[in-house]
Structures are given as structure tokens and as C-alpha cells.
Design a protein around this nucleic acid. Structure first.
Lengths: 151, 151
DNA sequence: TCCAAAATTTAGCCTAGGCTAAGTATTGTC
DNA sequence: GACAATACTTAGCCTAGGCTAAATTTTGGA
């Protein structure tokens, strides 16, 4: 006998549409977050972030990176000094820091659930853009509870 | 003093690129999954799935739905009988069932973590397309453990 | 039956994000 | 100091997914 899952009726059309709209919004910002996060990582770990390295690490052509960086520049997140590398604006830096914090929290949470490292990292890449603040808080709470063995 | 998080070095460029490639792949299939899942829900709950209702529930224009349904038809997932509604092919039905199973599991998991119903549903909408089978298994394990209070 | 309302499609436009191929510019090394 | 290798940009193309406005069906009720 199947656990009664409160066979959910459909939400109102408006609520339903709002969920999808939030979804599309998240999709739109995901690329920007991935780029600034990677640029920040490269700056921190390698001392510089070159377009050619972004292309390699994102698995896209250099032409695609040029175009995407153009949009990020237009949006005030990134600055470029050709042949010198890419840099984050203040706003870009803030976005990267927030993205990294989210990313790391999701990874820690998935590891705590028992996932192997590579899967946790790979899944976090997708999940980090689609979880609400409330979910992130719940993840953090889970991790905190878990590190407090006694009650 | 910050918990030592094994300040992860960057993955190899190839591994990194593979993660992003998987990500882009998931993005490509997300729309199809959302549509067939919604069509299946409408067929089950309302007896029919009309393009106009999809437009309302997805929060997009009817023209967008026409175009998207065209792609789903081309891909063998959906059939249309104009003014009679939309139907799923066998493959479309399988995809919808898989998507719904994933969706429901994610919702149950998020509820178990303490999220309210609306947030769980909204977050699931995004998360369901980006979690691996391994993560889903971990979610299921968590739910199972939780329902077995004793050890 | 007729005809207005509702559903659907078409046309034409746009952006993001992919690609390849072919430039152009810079650097670093000999 | 020249020049090959490397980095970057440009041009031109493509698909998915959005939009509005304007047809075009089709349905259902008076």
C-alpha cells in the first residue's frame, strides 16, 4: 500500500506560472554566475583568468567566451585587459562570492548525504542555481545538526 | 576558526569542462521534461491538455507554446489534435513518468528537510533537472532512514 | 444556422549561447 | 629585433525560447 502522498492537485495557474517564471529567471543568471565564479577561482588559484582558460574549463570555443564576456562587460560584472586577463568589477566580485558560498554549501550538503566528491561537485554545478534561500538555510541546518552528535 | 574544508584545488580542465557539458545537456532537456510532465498532469487531473492551458500554467504566450510543441512533436514526444488537445507518445509518456517520479522524490525530500510546501514545489521545479541518479538515491535513502525511527 | 468567442497558427522580431573559419594583435624567445 | 606561437576578435551561421500582432480555424450557444 503506497504511502499517502497527498496526491497533490495542480496549483493555480498563476502560482504554477510563477514557479516557471522563477525558473527561467534562474536560467538567465546561471551563465553569468558560472563565469564570474570561475574567473574568481582562476584569479585566486592561478593568479590570472585568461579567456583561453575559461574556454577550456567551460568546454566551449574561444569565440563563445568572447561573446559571453562581452555580455558580462555590458552588464558591469567583468573587465577585460586583452592579453592580460579578465577581472571582476566590484559587483562581479560580490556575485562570484555569493555563488561560491552557495556552491560550497551545496557541495558540503551533498557530501554529507553520502555522495562521492566528483558527483557532489558535478551536481552542485547545476543545483546551486536553482535552490532558494530557504533551501540553503535548510541545508545549513542539516549540516549543523549533523555536527552536533548529542541532542 | 573556519572548519577546514579541504580548500579544493581546481579540477582538471577536462573534468571541469565535462561538468559544464553535463549541465548544458540538462538545460537542453529541461524544457521538454517540463512540458511533458505538465501535459501528463493535465491529462490526469483535468482529462485533457490544451495548448492554451499550457500557456497559462507555464506563463508564456500561446505562440511560444505552439513553437515548443512543434519541437516536441518533431522529437516524437507529443501528438496534437488541434482543438482537441495534446497527447503524449509512448516515449513522451515514459519521459513524463520519469520526470514526475523525480519531481515527487525531490519534493518529498525538501519537505523532509523542513521546507514549506510552496517552496519545496518551486525549488523542485528547478532541482529535478539537475540532480544525478546518485543524488536521487541518496535522497531516497535519507527518506527511508528517517521513516525508520529506531536504529 | 450563424456568428462571436475562443483556440490555434503564422509572421516577424529579439536575445542568449553555441559553432567554425578566418582574421588580427601580442608576446616571448632565439 | 624578428617572427612563430599564442591569444583574442570578427564574421557568419545555427537552435532554443521568448515576444506581439495578425490571421485562421473551430466550437458552441442563441
Amino acid at each position: 500500500m503506497r504511502r499517502a502522498l497527498a496526491e497533490r492537485p495542480l496549483p493555480s495557474a498563476d502560482d504554477h506560472a510563477a514557479r516557471f517564471a522563477r525558473q527561467r529567471e534562474a536560467d538567465r543568471t546561471a551563465t553569468a554566475e558560472d563565469y564570474v565564479e570561475l574567473i574568481a577561482d582562476l584569479l585566486r588559484e592561478e593568479g590570472e583568468a585568461r579567456a583561453v582558460d575559461l574556454a577550456r574549463r567551460m568546454g566551449v570555443s574561444q569565440a563563445t567566451v568572447t561573446a559571453t564576456i562581452g555580455r558580462l562587460q555590458r552588464d558591469g560584472l567583468v573587465e577585460t585587459k586583452p592579453y592580460r586577463g579578465l577581472f571582476l568589477t566590484e559587483e562581479g566580485g560580490r556575485l562570484a562570492a555569493a555563488a561560491k558560498a552557495r556552491h560550497d554549501l551545496v557541495v558540503r550538503f551533498l557530501l554529507a548525504l553520502g555522495l562521492d566528491h566528483e558527483t557532489a561537485e558535478a551536481d552542485a554545478e547545476g543545483v546551486e542555481h536553482h535552490v532558494s534561500e530557504k533551501a540553503l538555510k535548510a541545508f545549513a541546518r542539516f549540516l549543523a545538526d549533523r555536527e552536533t552528535p548529542g541532542r
